[in-house]
């Protein structure tokens, strides 16, 4: 058994999701390699080589890999996949975009978003927005898997001395071209890496009112999230969305404010350690998963909360 993990990174550093994915790989075998496709990404390679859990770090550098478009990365991973029994990537938008392509070209049926490794062929994964957990067994020769980062602790990124192996790039077919990106800039922690998250829903009424959450977030060092309804209404950008079709989070503390608790929202946060709900409707379903529920108007509760923490 040999596992290849596909690194998620931004040419400057590894994304934390890569560390969770390596942990999942370690549950399968001790023989874990990493592949990094990018441009001017030597720092990422050096960082990766320091990860104790890794044997080899394969690096493919080329200008056309700067934005890691899936068609280009797929070619490189597929041509380097033959000695591996498993290919793993995080179930982030990066991994979701990339892995099914690789899987199809290797004629394997991908297993998405696993939360547990039972053995080399058998995995657990949520289905139907987390209403059920399926145990599935793959009969494919090569297993292509995405992992839910919140289900695996990150591996330590130190103590290692992996060998860096440069691999040759493959020319782009030029099917897709990067045009632009608008990345969220924030001094607050990233949602998927935060210890504490405070999220707002439709009950916030406007984007301006999110400052009530931001004040608290800044005091607690927390990230700010949102329900789909709040994103759809334009209160906050899309990258705030927590849920079945947004981000999956599992912080130590999740505070849901003015969020009703639809199953699609719960799918993204119900593995948080402590859940707090603030909602003026005492029958809101969010209270069924909340460790602490406060039935109150959020416009009363939030200023008070900001004062008392």
């Amino acid at each position: 058994m040999r596992v290849l993990v596909i690194a998620e990174h931004d040419n400057a550093a590894l994304k934390p999701s890569t560390l969770n994915t390596i942990s999942a790989a370690k549950k399968l075998t001790d023989d874990v390699d990493l592949i990094i496709c990018g441009f001017e990404c030597d720092n990422v390679a050096t960082e990766a080589a320091g990860i104790d859990a890794l044997t080899n770090v394969h690096v493919c550098k080329s200008e056309h890999l700067k934005y890691q478009l899936s068609e280009d990365v797929t070619q490189i991973v597929v041509s380097n996949a033959k000695n591996y029994s498993h290919l793993l990537a995080p179930a982030t938008t990066f991994g979701k975009n990339l892995m099914p392509r690789i899987s199809a070209l290797l004629d394997a049926q991908q297993i998405s978003d696993i939360i547990e490794v039972i053995d080399e062929c058998t995995f657990k994964r949520p289905i139907y927005a987390g209403s059920c957990i399926a145990t599935v067994k793959s009969n494919d020769e090569i297993k292509v898997i995405t992992i839910r980062a919140t289900a695996f602790d990150p591996c330590a990124n130190e103590g290692g001395n992996a060998e860096i192996v440069n691999i040759d790039p493959i020319d782009s077919k030029g099917q897709s071209e990067f045009v632009s990106e608008e990345l969220a800039k924030s001094d607050r922690p990233e949602l998927t890496a935060a210890d504490i998250i405070i999220s707002g829903g439709r009950g916030m009424q406007s984007g301006d009112n999110f400052h009530l959450l931001e004040t608290i977030a800044d005091k607690l060092g927390a990230a700010v999230g949102a329900s789909r309804a709040a994103v759809d209404a334009g209160f906050v950008p899309n990258d705030y969305q927590v849920g079945q079709t947004g981000k999956i989070v599992a912080p130590n503390l999740y505070i849901a404010v003015g969020i009703s608790g639809a199953i699609q929202h719960l799918a993204g946060m119900k593995d948080s350690k402590i859940i707090v709900a603030i909602n003026k409707d005492e029958d809101a379903p969010i209270f069924q998963v909340a460790d602490y529920g406060l039935v109150d108007d959020l416009f009363n509760a939030l200023p008070e909360l900001a004062e008392q923490i």
Binding site: Q109, I133, A134, K270
Partner: peptide, 25 residues
Amino acid sequence: RVDTLSVELPPERDAGIKVESVSDL
């Protein structure tokens, strides 16, 4: 290519409590 061996409910969360006030919380 993939067999479903079983389907189960996810672990239930223990019922929480309602707090009376922000200071309680």
